[in-house]
């Protein structure tokens, strides 16, 4: 917390608030039936995406998941371009071809959300090996869930990173569920994911993913370590997802009062506000002003996306190859 100045703090809050507002608005808009397909909301996990991506440069690469909106916003994807994409419009970040699950923006180092659970981890190692070739201290980061940590691809990627000393970072967002199954059931290593990374031979950290400052500071240490050339590292973040697995999920797997409790006790935005106002670093009025700007931006993004043009059906088979075909 002490490392961050006024503007950095306000910026971090703006990005977390943007993710929250983006997702809450989607939760409402999906009910209108205008957005089809699968949409997985990131609300509740904002401190992870922002606490990590705020410390990266554009040249550092991230690989995301099916629950990717937060990673996109934190890494700097255009919010309006994302909304257009989720509405399947021609002006969307991926021309409407990808949708919510496949948003990518290579210009900001966001190598793609991924509909295949566990699909991204090896790619982050590849990005890390590319960074190693360039020798500028850049890193490749994969975000994975407590579910994705059970895929063979994740294991293979961890071992490959260790044996090649790749500057790869494995971020495990443990929100306690993979779809409707609890991590207590599905993760065999005594309910601990970070120890898997340790078993593969890399250093691992653990942090409270609902606390921006804990996430930020713990990741700072990890990032310094990886940038210094020690090879890969991992971090497990204990976090919460505030909505269902996908929109429309009845969530009968939750305990009584669970959602109210996590929204009350584990809301990273509320916690951030309390911390910075009590420490006198930011005022409530400054934060309120950010929230209002964010809401206005999301309103505009939705209005523009709803009014935007669909792709031309004649382009359906464009963009399959980079070269002549």
């Amino acid at each position: 917390m002490l490392q961050l100045g006024h503007d950095a703090l306000l910026g971090a809050y703006r990005r977390m608030s943007t993710i929250r507002a983006f997702e809450e608005r989607l939760h409402d808009e999906i009910k209108t039936g205008e957005i089809a397909g699968f949409t997985h909301l990131y609300a509740g996990q904002e401190a992870v995406a922002v606490g990590i991506c705020d410390q990266l440069t554009v040249e550092d690469k991230i690989v995301s998941t099916h629950r990717g909106h937060g990673h996109c916003i934190a890494k700097g994807c255009d919010v309006k371009g994302m909304m257009l994409e989720i509405y399947g419009r021609a002006a969307g970040l991926c021309k409407g071809r990808g949708g919510s699950m496949h948003i990518a923006d290579l210009d900001v180092g966001m190598l793609g959300a991924n509909g295949i659970v566990g699909g991204g981890a090896p790619q982050a190692v590849g990005a890390a090996l590319a960074a190693k070739m360039d020798g500028k201290g850049r890193v490749g980061i994969t975000f994975s869930g407590d579910g994705a940590c059970n895929q063979g691809t994740t294991f293979e990627a961890m071992n490959l990173a260790v044996v090649t000393k790749a500057p790869a970072i494995f971020v495990f967002e443990n929100n306690h569920y993979s779809e409707h199954t609890g991590f207590q059931y599905a993760v065999g290593t005594a309910q601990d994911i970070a120890s898997r990374a340790e078993a593969f031979g890399m250093k691992a950290w653990r942090a409270n993913g609902c606390d921006f400052f804990d996430t930020y500071e713990t990741f700072r240490e990890l990032l310094d370590y990886v940038r210094a050339g020690h090879g890969p590292a991992a971090i497990e973040l204990d976090t919460e997802r505030f909505y269902g697995h996908f929109e429309g999920d009845p969530q009968r797997y939750r305990g009584p009062g669970e959602l109210d409790r996590i929204r009350e006790k584990r809301d990273c935005l509320k916690a951030f506000r309390t911390t910075v106002t009590e420490a006198g670093l930011l005022t409530g009025a400054e934060l309120d002003a950010v929230d209002a700007e964010v809401l206005a931006l999301i309103d505009e993004a939705v209005a523009e996306a709803r009014a935007a043009a669909d792709p031309d059906p004649a382009t359906v088979a464009d963009d399959v190859y980079a070269e002549y075909y």
Binding site: Y177, E179, H180, T181, G182, F183, Q184, Y185, A186, R252, Y253, R254, G255, P256, E258
Partner: peptide
Amino acid sequence: GGNGTAGG
């Protein structure tokens, strides 16, 4: 669907 959760 529900193993390892409060819902059972």
